[in-house]
Design a binder for these strands. Structure first.
Length: 475
RNA sequence: GGUCGCGUAGCUCAGCUGGAUAGAGCAUCUGCCUUCUAAGCAGCCGGUCAUAGGUUCGAUUCCUAUCGCGAUCACCA
């Protein structure tokens, strides 16, 4: 089972989520190619103070707006009210401070913040009005997310909602207490002593008996193994800022005696940063996923129309093509980088379409298909003696490495290895293509070269498929 | 401060588990479209692989230290 995505339901997805989704989806595909049966899942953070903030702001300022009434994507609408909350919060805080209240004290008195906290309490108490509003606004967000996922080309086999699972894990804490793995302090809080592992004590249950993050994760891990008893491994696609959390989580599960704890893997990836530093939604320094994808499509369209190679296609076919090329460029750009390394994304420098890029590879594929179509009178197996060109030898050698590359990439959970392999393959092929005429006049030579090209095309398509990138027949 | 991760060309990155003159792309410059799609190919320029030690026949790769950058060390998720 591979888990990825894990969005909060109070704002639209951004570039960080794109990396998460692409990695998770691609690793799933990679593991499938390596022979595993994969189940893709996501956990959705649909409850908490963040969504309450959007709810409070929408109630106060929304005038009953809906995605239908504004024509806006649902997640964008809810995100707008999250921002509105923050704006109001800052304004009210400034007013309090101006009236002579100390900053620390003022922070605990901001009216809209108190409202949000009150709403969270009402939500937890099961208040029907609050729950209804919550369900309505989350539904808007899910519709918006669904659009984004579809555009991005990622999918899931199942969903876990935090509102269903946030109370899980308490049984496990009880078990831990009775087995002596956990200890309870005087105030009632429960801890796991990890000092023998060189770590500190870790809180697993609050003094008031409520769950913390790790309590839930203990619970959902056990739940997932109950839901999928045959499962022999689980991959958590989560940023490396949570390395410590997962280290602790796996250790505790191991201490509790779950024999599958050793099969858990944290697919830890680097953050996507901007030249200005970390993306912060509150400061508006995020690269919006939908906006970026649209930009990529537009760029693909601009390049294609200036090259004018697509005259034979109708409008719908062209749009599909722009999507495959634009999104392909984005996916390749993200996935070609070693997952463990952070990505520096400069919005001012658009993603390339030349060089080591998705379109470069797609283009090679399209040229190959064009050749194969012009020579579709291939006969059965032919044994022939031909002298191999040096570049043909290199190509054949490289093609042979593909299966092993998949295995290595799967072992390392690294789609980047596939991307680099395919890039090297295409480099070799392009060089060959330049040097040699594939549609040779000599029948035997032509047969061989077309087959070789066709095989290269097959591997390109397969490799790009692992990255979730379509290879158009023409571009 | 403790822990973890990262420092390779002006920029973005490869370098597969230690092996020969460290490779690409972008950017600058130079060639190549009346034969299969020039989103391509060929070439020029560009590196003290952060620094200093150590292990080894051999280190960008492994170890240690130092410097720099980032993350984390919440009764937030």
């Amino acid at each position: 089972m591979v888990e990825y995505s894990s969005p909060n339901t109070n704002k639209p997805l951004h570039l960080g989520h794109i990396r998460n989704n692409l990695l998770g989806a691609s690793v799933s595909q990679l593991l499938t190619s390596a022979g595993y049966q994969v189940h893709k899942t996501q956990i959705i953070n649909d409850r908490g103070i963040h969504i309450c903030k959007s709810m409070v702001a929408w109630k106060a300022m929304g005038n009953g707006e809906t995605p239908e009434s504004t024509g806006e994507k649902g997640d964008a609408l809810v995100g707008r009210y999250y921002v509105a909350f923050d704006t109001t919060y800052k304004k009210q805080l400034a007013e309090l401070i101006a009236s002579g209240i100390h900053e620390e004290e003022a922070k605990s008195q901001v009216p809209i913040q108190l409202e949000a906290q009150e709403m969270l309490r009402a939500w937890e108490a099961g208040n029907e009005t609050v729950r209804a509003l919550w369900a309505k606004m989350n539904a808007w967000v899910y519709d918006g997310f669904a659009e984004t996922y579809q555009e991005l080309g990622v999918s899931f086999d199942s969903y876990y909602y935090e509102s269903d699972t946030y109370l899980l894990g308490k049984d496990i804490v009880d078990q831990g207490l009775s087995s002596g793995m956990f200890l309870q302090k005087d105030d009632g809080s429960v801890w796991c002593d990890l000092s023998d592992e060189g770590l500190d004590e870790k809180l697993v249950l609050r003094a008031d008996g409520t769950s913390v993050y790790i309590t839930q994760d203990l619970g959902t891990a056990v739940l997932r193994y109950k839901d999928h008893p045959d499962m022999n491994g689980m991959v958590y696609t989560v940023g490396n800022e949570q390395d410590y959390h997962f280290k602790v989580l796996f250790l505790i599960l191991n201490k509790l005696g779950y024999n599958w704890a050793s099969q858990l893997h944290h697919l830890s990836y680097g953050m996507v940063d901007l030249p200005s530093g970390k993306m912060k939604s509150r400061e508006g320094t995020v690269v919006d996923a939908d906006g970026l994808m649209q930009e990529m499509r537009d760029t693909a369209q601009n390049i294609a129309s200036s090259l004018g190679k697509l005259d034979g296609l109708d409008k719908q076919e062209k749009n599909e093509l722009y999507r495959h090329i634009g999104i392909g460029a984005l996916k390749y750009y993200i996935l070609k980088v070693d997952p463990t390394k952070r990505i520096l994304f400069n919005p001012k420098e658009s993603v390339d379409f030349n060089g080591n890029t998705g379109p470069f590879i797609q283009y090679a594929y399209a040229r190959i298909q064009s050749i194969v179509k012009q020579s579709n009178n291939l006969k059965g197996n032919i044994y022939m003696e031909i002298t191999l060109d040096q570049k043909e030898k290199e190509l054949l050698k490289w093609l042979e490495l593909y299966p092993q590359t998949i295995q290595n990439a799967a072992e390392q959970y690294s789609p980047a290895l596939i991307a680099n392999y395919v890039y090297e393959l295409v480099k070799r092929f392009n060089s060959y293509y330049q040097k040699v005429v594939i549609l040779s006049d000599d029948e035997h030579t032509r047969q061989f070269r077309v087959r070789l090209a066709s095989q290269v095309g097959y591997v390109i398509q397969s490799g790009m498929g692992i990255l979730g990138i379509e290879c158009p027949e023409q571009m």
